[in-house]
Design a binder for these strands. Structure first.
Lengths: 168, 168
DNA sequence: ATTTGACCTCAAGGTTACTTGAGTTTCTAG
DNA sequence: CTAGAAACTCAAGTAACCTTGAGGTCAAAT
């Protein structure tokens, strides 16, 4: 580990292993993100990746997006305006984060609405197909295409009975 | 369309096309859900599926879960206690829906927390790695396995600039 | 100097959630 | 009764997001 002796020296470059540990992202995932152009690294003479510190922030912001269920293609767009070769200014960080904030708010409101609807329907025990908006959303539900749609991301463990495998 | 004349007769069985239209779920997806044991149907002499009405509710509840980003494997678990061969009682519906409600609440709280954190960090422009919880969640973030993780489900279109393809 | 662990690339595989297509059969309206 | 729409099965393909493996290189501690 290249940075283990100088944890907090300001301009220390981080190896991929360091970054993996700090961010909790697997090395293979970092490779993948690099392929997508979401992150970048300098290289040593021996072709090994060396990350400047601000890349960790970039990755962390990426993780925030992931936690929100934002697809990487959207992250790509949002990151397009962030410089890769120098530390972004606070102003630049703010601009990007603002997008996430907006998305967060939207999602929160949708969830609140769902909660209200579910409470209404289930509360009265009706679950009536005709009256219940939740069960008859009508709106764009049928418009959705195929492909995977997941987000256990935020780790709620629905049943709470430990019945879900710890995956793999 | 078998049910087009008797839209609201009580014990009418629905063809797969009917169900697809009512729920907004593609026929192929219904086949898929059946494979997973999430739904079931009676068959005609000619082997075509005929769904009892309550299956539509079951599917609708499944869709709610999907909207929440719950993976189908979790839905499977939750549905395990719902009878497939008869109309579930309101009590049974309630029990299952309660799980969703809990999940919703958890998710909402997480989002609220994220919002607070993001506001704090971005608001002051610091985005500091040491002080910011958002960028250093530490908690179980690294525990996540591979596989797809998406949820544009609720359709927020982050950038709002119509830059995202309408898929396919 | 050597060994051990970290790293590299590239191709292929895995998971979730479906869709698409081929070839065939069943239903229903005229 | 017959044509055309709708359904059936099964296999294979797709998309997002990574992981795993093979085969080889680099770097830091002994």
């Amino acid at each position: 580990m290249s940075a283990v002796m100088y944890e907090h020296s300001p301009d220390e470059l981080l190896s991929i292993g360091d970054v993996a540990q700090r961010t909790g992202v697997a090395r293979s995932a970092l490779h993948y993100y690099e392929q997508l152009g979401l992150i970048a690294a300098q290289r040593t003479v021996g072709n090994q990746r060396r990350y400047p510190r601000y890349m960790v922030r970039r990755i962390s912001l990426l993780l925030v997006a992931k936690r929100l269920g934002v697809p990487l293609s959207d992250v790509q767009e949002a990151f397009a305006s962030l410089p890769m070769d120098r530390k972004p200014t606070p102003r630049e960080w703010r601009r990007v984060s603002k997008v996430w904030r907006t998305s967060l708010e939207v999602r929160r409101r949708q969830i609140e609405r769902l909660e209200r609807e579910l409470t209404g329907c289930i509360g009265c025990g009706c679950l009536s197909m005709t009256a219940c908006q939740l069960l008859n959303p009508d709106d764009e539900l049928s418009e959705r295409g195929p492909g995977p749609q997941r987000l256990t991301e935020t780790g709620e463990r629905l049943t709470g009975k430990g019945s879900r495998q710890e995956r793999r």
